[in-house]
Computed example of a mutant assay.
Amino acid sequence: MELLHSGKVRDVYADGGDLLLVASDRVSIYDVVLPTPIPEKGKILTQLSLWWFEQLADVIPNHVISSTDVPSEWAGRAIRCERLDMVMVECIARGYLAGSGLKEYERDGAVSGVALPPGLIEGSELPEPIFTPTTKAPVGEGHDEFMTFADVEEKVGKELAAELRRVTLEVYRRGQQVARDKGIIIADTKLELGFTKDGTLKLGDELLTPDSSRFWQADEWKPGSAQRYLDKQFLRDWATHNTDWDRTAPGPEIPAEVVDATRNRYIEVYERLTGASWS
């Protein structure tokens, strides 16, 4: 088995013609891996992704071959999957205004070239979900930049650009529908897509997790105020308001109580969405 890539959270191994995607307990914010892991985080991300892949298999196929045919030391946190030729576009859907989307709107009145009504504030629900793709910056080489839909068409062609937008918005729509029934708002989410050897477009990486999405407590949602975050935004806020960190490596050590609070949010999202107890 050969280690092909070690990312901020996942390690990718080659095993014959397959890949093993192993989710660690590492946590990154602002593109920096913090020195303190979040116990069981990798397992929670993996199991929640597997659940979502199954729920949304009728929207688009995914890269999963097996969640059990993996080395025992990685049980629960690894997926055996197909090799994909990844599309070099970050596919993002937004239904609410937050994060970098909010900053883009405040500057331009639009996100990824999609004009939005005036007067929106942090946490505002958008008139309808929008596709806000970004570039994919190599790890450690800068930040992703917003792309317009025309930029995506130029990069991958009109037909594929249209399919990326359709899939991203439909996955978001379906995921949001499921989550709202469980009292959770999915404010935005990021997808990774790629092609198999036979040219089939499939979902890869992770899906609708607290690392790739913003989850808010629905009954406490209020535009213009801090949401109750059920994702790693909680950790970003802790680092921003409780440390003097300048967002360069290695990052601050996370206190035990913040580790526990972060882990508990990940578990809460898993249990509420899937209906299964985490043990």
Rank of each mutant, 00 (worst) to 15 (best):
M1T: 01
M1G: 04
M1K: 11
L4M: 07
L4D: 04
S6K: 09
V9D: 15
D11N: 03
Y13H: 04
G17C: 14
G17H: 14
D18Q: 15
L20T: 02
L21R: 02
L21A: 05
V22S: 08
V22M: 03
S24A: 03
V27S: 11
S28G: 07
S28L: 06
V32C: 08
P35N: 04
E40V: 00
I44H: 00
T46N: 09
T46I: 03
L48M: 10
S49C: 10
F53C: 10
F53D: 06
F53S: 13
L56M: 14
D58I: 13
I60Y: 02
I60C: 15
P61E: 06
I65H: 06
W74G: 03
W74A: 04
G76S: 00
R77Y: 13
L84M: 05
M86W: 15
M86E: 01
V87A: 00
M88A: 13
A93Q: 06
G95M: 09
A98G: 07
G99K: 04
G99H: 04
S100H: 08
K103W: 11
E104K: 11
E106P: 03
R107G: 06
R107A: 05
D108M: 15
D108C: 15
G109K: 11
G109Q: 08
A110H: 06
V114I: 10
L116F: 01
L116M: 00
P117F: 02
P117Y: 00
P117D: 12
P118N: 07
I121A: 13
I121H: 13
L126R: 01
E128M: 04
P129G: 08
P129Y: 05
I130H: 00
I130C: 10
I130V: 14
K136V: 10
A137C: 10
P138N: 13
P138I: 14
E141C: 03
G142M: 14
D144I: 03
E145S: 11
E145H: 09
M147R: 06
T148M: 01
F149M: 12
A150Y: 03
D151N: 12
D151Q: 09
D151I: 11
V152C: 06
E154A: 01
K158C: 07
K158S: 07
K158V: 13
E159V: 14
A162Q: 14
E163R: 15
R166N: 08
V167F: 11
T168G: 01
E170G: 09
V171I: 15
V171L: 04
R174N: 12
Q177D: 15
Q177I: 10
R180P: 06
R180Y: 00
D181N: 13
I185K: 12
K190T: 14
F195N: 07
T196N: 14
D198W: 09
G199H: 09
T200E: 12
K202Y: 10
L203K: 03
G204K: 09
E206Y: 08
P210I: 11
D211K: 03
D211R: 07
D211N: 08
S212Q: 10
S212V: 12
S213W: 02
W216I: 07
D219M: 00
D219L: 09
P223G: 05
K232M: 13
K232A: 00
Q233S: 06
F234V: 08
T243M: 03
W245R: 00
D246T: 08
T248H: 15
P252Q: 04
P255Y: 09
V259N: 05
V259A: 11
V259M: 13
R263G: 04
N264I: 15
E268R: 06
E268G: 12
V269W: 14
Y270Q: 03
L273I: 14
T274A: 15
S277L: 07
